[in-house]
Amino acid sequence: MNDPRDFERPILEIEEQIENLKLFGGEAKREKELAALQKKLAKLRREVFAKLTPWQVVQVARHPRRPHFLDYVEALFDSFTELRGDRRFADDPAVVAGFARFRGRPVCLVGHQKGRDTKQKLLRNFGMPKPEGYRKALRVMRLAEKFRVPVLTFIDTPGAYPGMDAEERGQAEAIAYNLQEMARLRTSVVVTVTGEGGSGGALALGVGDRVNMLEHSIYSVISPEGCAAILWKDAARAEEAAAALKLTAKDLLRLALVDRVIEEPLGGAHADPPALFASVAMVLEEQLSELAAVDPGSLFDARYAKFRAMGAVAGA
């Protein structure tokens, strides 16, 4: 299999040329060349990103430079106070939770955190939570309910951690309990899938009144690699599996499984994070305002109706 990020190589090459030019080019000539290169870059980005295959979208969703949860916290919120630990066993750094202000409004923030460098990746366990991560998330969401603070969750995980310790401490129970309890949380919940929505490990932070997906994020019952290994008996057929799984934001919006797709800047979220954050902030502001008008007592019924409608059956 080729490097799955080959499609981005021409873009990276021009980006590199631009960087070099900025560093070493002469004054007058530099401005002109720079303008030309930037024009070329925009055109290339437009071309490449206009026809991304599902497998390429998977690569963008997992892009090493893609903004992670703490980048959103930093960019969109003020005075974030992180609350740690599940009060049962441990603190799981793969999930970050706490309270902050969003344009003055108190909010509860919960998200998966992937690490960027090797040390961070190990600390964050590549964004794969253990049961204590889900239990911490619920504990903090319960505080939000108690104090009538809206909850914003940010989903970005390859999946719940499939290890022995996680199994022993009830990974399945932790996820299941979050699903049940988020369904009846008496405060509004806005979910945004920012990168990888990996199966039950993603959904365990994903039961809300509004569910958004970034344009190049994915949401799937299993990773394309895992699906290919099982159904094609060959993990290398992940590209086909990615297409078959209909895991892109566009697909899921069409299937009415998510409410809204948040457009990303040209070239993906990592190409222009400030522009991305502005789009996300706009949507969150709008949804928080809508939900603020809803009586918390009626949220459960509406949330139930929303998820109740999901599924495709005949003869019903």
């Binding site: 959904l203 799937s220 299937l255 499984l257 599924g311």
Partner: peptide, 9 residues
């Protein structure tokens, strides 16, 4: 796919 996932919720 995600239809299955959402049955959990």
């Amino acid at each position: 796919s995600v239809f299955s996932l959402m049955q959990m919720a």
